[in-house]
Computed example of a mutant assay.
Amino acid sequence: MEHPYLFFVKIFEAIGLGHFAHTYTHVVYSWVLMAILIIAGALATKTISMVPGKAQNLFEVIVSGIEEFMVETVGEEGRWLFPLAATIFLYIFIGNLIGIIPGFFPPTANLNTTASCAIVVVVFTHVIGIKYHGAKYIKHFMGPVWWMAPLIFIIEIIGHLARILSLSFRLFGNMMGHEIVLAILFGLAGAFFAPLPIMALGIFVAFVQGFVFFLLSIIYFSGAMEHAH
Rank of each mutant, 00 (worst) to 15 (best):
M1H: 10
F7M: 12
I11L: 14
G18S: 08
H19F: 12
A21W: 07
T23A: 10
V32R: 02
V32L: 10
L37D: 04
I38L: 15
I39Y: 14
I39P: 04
L43C: 09
L43T: 02
S49C: 01
S49H: 12
N57S: 13
L58Y: 10
F59M: 15
E60I: 11
S64N: 14
M70Q: 15
P83Q: 06
L84M: 15
A85G: 06
A86H: 02
I88H: 04
Y91D: 01
I92C: 01
I92T: 03
I92D: 01
I94V: 15
N96V: 03
L97V: 05
I98S: 01
I100R: 08
I101L: 13
P102W: 09
L111R: 05
N112D: 06
T113P: 00
T113V: 09
T114M: 05
C117Y: 11
C117H: 10
I119S: 06
V120H: 01
V121G: 06
V122G: 07
V122N: 04
T125V: 03
I130M: 04
Y132F: 12
H133W: 12
H133L: 08
G134K: 07
G134A: 03
A135I: 14
K139P: 00
K139L: 14
H140K: 11
F141P: 06
M142S: 11
G143M: 07
V145Y: 07
W147T: 10
A149I: 06
P150W: 10
L151D: 02
F153K: 08
I154H: 08
I154L: 15
I158M: 14
H160N: 14
L161I: 14
L161Y: 12
A162F: 10
A162W: 03
I164K: 06
S168K: 05
S168L: 02
F172K: 02
G173Y: 01
M175V: 07
M175D: 07
M176W: 13
M176L: 12
G177S: 03
A183K: 10
A183C: 00
A183L: 01
I184A: 11
I184W: 13
I184R: 12
L185P: 08
G187N: 08
G187H: 09
A189E: 14
G190K: 05
A191N: 09
F193D: 03
I198Y: 07
M199H: 04
L201F: 12
L201H: 01
G202A: 09
G202C: 04
F211M: 05
F211Y: 10
F213A: 08
F213P: 01
F214P: 00
L215H: 04
L216R: 03
S217W: 03
S217A: 15
I218G: 01
A224Q: 02
E226F: 04
H227K: 15
A228L: 05
H229V: 12
